[in-house]
Structures are given as structure tokens and as C-alpha cells.
Design a protein around this nucleic acid. Structure first.
Lengths: 205, 205
DNA sequence: TTACAAAACTAACGGTTATTAGTTTTTGTA
DNA sequence: TACAAAAACTAATAACCGTTAGTTTTGTAA
């Protein structure tokens, strides 16, 4: 009898997923064809189906891999003993690093999730909604503790998530600035603002 | 002889564009079919071509209408005598109001521009790049005048544009908060930050 | 070598797409 | 009422799509 799952098999499927993430990002899920994906992988289109179930399955795998990474990281942050500001900083930095490190997958999860089929679509949206609610709760606590200004927590979450998400445009400027400056400046901007109040500015550069 | 362009004609084309913006937003440009659009308009698909040139033309019209609105508003702001902070506030509020008022068109311009054909694709990206450069210049001036912290201007532009763009997710929470609070809180968050700093923070990681 | 499964291939299917051609209906005016 | 243009319709086309069926090749273990 042959082995159930030779290592090679899993590996090939992962290659396909990685190429799919890249292709879906560049062309969009609908515009990306299985024939194109096959060419990237180096086989004919029908051969892909020896490793995957369907085009739709590829999208599911990509989207939920991303969603699960964020969910588990948020749980980890919650189990630390940081201040609210400290937690927010950790979360913002995690988002930034994910965006810079697993760009294709995150881009696809952010832009192409709407093409998920049920029940995956509902599951995905639920997971995202819970993530946001969790962030809102953190900020509410920060307001209660007078760590944060009394701004609407939903607006704050929306602003932060959208801002870090915008790093998908970063590629264009990559050469002009280090990721450390990017990370620090964005954390500063989102937490402390960009205007110079009279009191504090010993911002060095 | 009949009139060259009876008002009705222009009007019908505008109806088609409006419905197209809505459909493209909901289903995505590629997934939206001309048959679906025709049904929304109330005719058969081929009849659309009495009013428009192609599906692609619809996308062009939507994208450039949005781009031109932002470009001309930015020029208008530049011709005022505001402080840099005042200019930024005007721009942020304009983005927010556009996002809330012409949601479909802006969503499509933000998400589906990649399906523009050349040379429209290049034109669109150029226009967007120029818009960003203009904003960078404004912020650089603010830093020079010591109105703003010495954060990287590109990072600041990226953060602001991404944050206001994120209002596309706002619909979900619409009922819980007024647009005035939304607008004010977001301006506060982006310009002055969300942390209550009573002291000089030497928060260093 | 033999045997067998994994994984590649070719060919083809049914379905959908944007769009064109050609024809009929509607509409506005002279 | 008559006429011409605008705009609707039906029918059809060529191109692609994801996927299946059936067959051949490849790789590995006995």
C-alpha cells in the first residue's frame, strides 16, 4: 500500500494556494481564470483538480487563513497585562507587519471575500464583526479609564482598521522609507495625532 | 428634422450610469452582467447599446467623474487662506461627505478601477498619484511651519486617505451615530489623536 | 520487474459573457 | 396623418469560463 499523503501532495497544494493568492490579488477573483493559475503553477488547468476541490475552495482557504491569524493574535493580546494604549499599539503593529509580510493573502481577504459562497460568506463576515466588536470593547475600556479621549469607539475602530488596511498602497513608496519609520509614524499618528500641541514635541527623526 | 439630442436621451444614459454604479458596487465589475444591468434599467440588454458604447465605458465614466470631483475640490481648498490644519480639516470633511453622499460611485472608483482599459487606467492612476503628491506638499508645509509633528508626510497622507476611505464600512453602524459625530470624531482622531496626554509621553518601545 | 496510486495529459461539455445584426415599435414633430 | 429618428426588440455569434471524463505518464514500494 502506498502512503496516504506523501509530503509532496500537501506541498503542491500550498504552492497552488500561494500562486492563487497572488493571481487573485492582481487580477481579482472573477477575472483570474483557472487556466491562468495553472500556467503559473506549471501544469494544465484540469491537473489542478487533483489537488484542490474548486476555484471557490481556494478563496475560502485564503480568506479564513487570514481571519484566523487576526483572531488568534487578538486573543493573545487580550491575555497580556498591557494598558489599553499598549494593547492598541500591539494590534496596530501586528496589522502593519501582516500587511507587509503576507500581502497577497490579506489583500485577497480584504477585497475578494464577497465572492465567497455560503455558508462561508456568513462565517467570514461574522468573524470580522466579532473582531471589530472586540476592538470596540477595548477602546470603550480605555475611555472609561480615561486613557483615551471620549470619541466614539466605533469611529476609532473604523479609523484605525481602515488606516492600517491602507498599507496595501504602500508598495509604491516602499523605497523611500523604512518599515520602522512607517510603523512608528503610523502608530503615533493614530494614537497621538499629527498636530503639534504646545506642550510636547520632542519628536526626533 | 428631429432634435439632435432630446433631453430624454441624456437622462436615460444617466439612469444607466447610476444603476451601473450601484450594480458594480454590489457585485463587482466583472461579476455584474449587462443583462442584469438591463433588468435594473427595465430593458433588454442589447437596448443599452443605444445609449452607451460598452460596459467598459460605464466604468470609465464613473471613475473619472469621481476623480475629477476630488481634484477640483482640492484646487479650491488650495485657493483659500486657511492654515494647513484648516486645509486638512476641509479635505477630510469633504472626503467624508462624498463617501456618505455618493457612495456607489466612490466605492466603484476605489475598488474597480483596476478593470479600466488603457489608456484610461494610466490616466486614472496618474490623477490619483498627483492628488496624493498635492496632499504630501500640504503636509510638508505644515511640518515646516511647525503646525504639524515631524512625521513622514507620505505616511500621514496614507493614513488619512485610508481612514476616510474606510467609511465604506460605515453603513453597518449608520443607525447608532449621527454623521456629525462621525465627522467630528474622525477629524479629531486624525488630527489630534485619540490618547489623552497630560504629560510628555516618552513612550518608547 | 511488477503493481498501483498519484498526478499529469487531451478532449470536450454546458453555461455565460459582451456585443452585433437586423427588425419592429415608439415617439416627437411638420 | 405622415415621416423620420430614437429606442426597443429577437436572434445569434464567437470567446471564455469552471469543471468532468477518460487516458497516459510518473513515481514509489514490494
Amino acid at each position: 500500500m502506498a502512503k496516504i499523503k506523501p509530503e509532496k501532495n500537501t506541498s503542491k497544494k500550498e504552492v497552488i494556494i500561494k500562486k492563487a493568492a497572488s493571481l487573485f490579488r492582481i487580477k481579482g477573483f472573477n477575472a483570474a481564470s483557472m487556466r491562468e493559475l495553472a500556467e503559473d503553477v506549471g501544469v494544465e488547468a484540469p491537473s489542478l483538480y487533483n489537488h484542490i476541490g474548486s476555484k471557490s475552495e481556494l478563496l475560502q482557504i485564503i480568506c479564513f487563513k487570514v481571519a484566523n491569524q487576526f483572531t488568534s493574535q487578538l486573543n493573545h493580546v487580550e491575555n497580556t497585562n498591557n494598558t489599553v494604549t499598549g494593547k492598541l499599539e500591539l494590534i496596530i503593529r501586528f496589522h502593519i507587519n501582516m500587511m507587509l509580510g503576507e500581502f497577497d493573502e490579506i489583500f485577497v481577504a480584504n477585497h475578494e471575500w464577497k465572492y465567497l459562497q455560503e455558508p462561508f460568506l456568513s462565517n467570514f463576515l461574522n468573524q470580522r464583526r466579532n473582531y471589530e466588536k472586540h476592538l470596540v470593547a477595548i477602546i470603550e475600556e480605555g475611555v472609561k479609564r480615561k486613557e483615551l479621549k471620549n470619541i466614539n469607539p466605533y469611529v476609532a475602530v473604523l479609523t484605525i482598521l481602515s488606516a492600517v488596511r491602507g498599507l496595501e498602497f504602500w508598495q509604491r513608496h516602499k523605497k523611500n522609507i523604512s518599515t520602522k519609520v512607517l510603523e512608528d509614524d503610523m502608530v503615533t499618528h493614530l494614537l497621538k495625532g499629527m498636530t503639534l500641541l504646545l506642550q510636547t514635541q520632542k519628536h526626533k527623526k
